[in-house]
């Protein structure tokens, strides 16, 4: 049983939570422009990382809020809990390492740091909407 620190309620048993799969999977900015292959990637393909994995959890029998968590999928150690819309804490450094940082389609809406409602203008926010994802 995992002991999960809900950012609002504190430490609670795993049974109070609902798993939401991989975090930081943005809804396509222009869905109509995607071909079948790209849609398949969005709908069916998720990272299946062995090691540090950023994932979404819902405190369903508590505050009923979604949040992100960084957890090791081998040791199950919880490394960080952070808000939806926030960037991965272990990849915080915004600029330096040339290509790598940008490859991860990060944070629910490209907004770099600001929690939620990033002001990027475009409507496709749906920021916190859990897309049903994996299960």
């Amino acid at each position: 049983m995992l002991l999960i620190s809900c950012p609002n309620c504190g430490s609670r048993d795993e049974t109070e939570f609902h798993y939401g799969g991989q975090a930081h999977v943005p809804y396509p900015e222009n869905p109509a422009a995607l071909d079948d292959r790209q849609w398949a990637q969005f709908l069916f393909y998720r990272d299946n990382t062995k090691g540090a994995f950023a994932e979404r959890w819902l405190h369903s029998t508590g505050c009923r809020q979604w949040f992100n968590m960084l957890r090791d999928t081998v040791t199950y150690e919880i490394q960080a809990v952070y808000p939806m819309g926030g960037g991965r804490p272990d990849r915080a450094a915004p600029a330096p390492e040339s290509g790598t940082a940008s490859t991860a389609p990060d944070s629910t809406t490209t907004g770099t740091a600001a929690p939620d409602v990033s002001g990027t203008g475009t409507g496709s926010a749906s920021t916190t909407a859990p897309e049903g994802a994996t299960e």
């Binding site: 048993d13 798993y19 994995f53 199950y76």
Partner: peptide
């Protein structure tokens, strides 16, 4: 178990 895992073990509940 609901979560992704490679640990060859799950939660007791």
């Amino acid at each position: 178990d609901a979560y992704n895992g490679y640990g060859q073990r799950g939660s007791f509940h």
